[in-house]
Amino acid sequence: MAEQQHTNAHHHGDRHTHISRGTYYRVFVALMVLMVLTVAAWWVEKNLLHIPGWLAVTIAMSIAIAKTVLIVLYFMHVKISSRMTQVYAAGAFVWLIILFVITMGDYVARGWPPQPGPLP
């Protein structure tokens, strides 16, 4: 069986690296902090100062993306996974963005509900 070793071995160097429990706890603390931040931001803009909607959405989404990155990289081991896994993990989000950007591009330019652009 020795000669039948799998060839696709470009990442064998790091496959035994491993994420320590300490890192998990630190990531968890970071996640909790982010969660408190997002709720706090929401509470502040509801009760204290009014900020434009797009800014509130940007804050909330940035925090959500930060949380996702932490979970994907550490809890889901993408940081130490093979290059291919990393590509697939990133690919999913890239394709989501394609779907969102192109579709919304149409809506914004077309105007729906009606809101005509320069080309009616």
Binding site: G105, D106, A109, R110, G111, G117, L119
Partner: peptide, 10 residues
Amino acid sequence: SSQSVYAGLI
């Protein structure tokens, strides 16, 4: 379909 003209061009 009444999609925007810009989107159509792209």
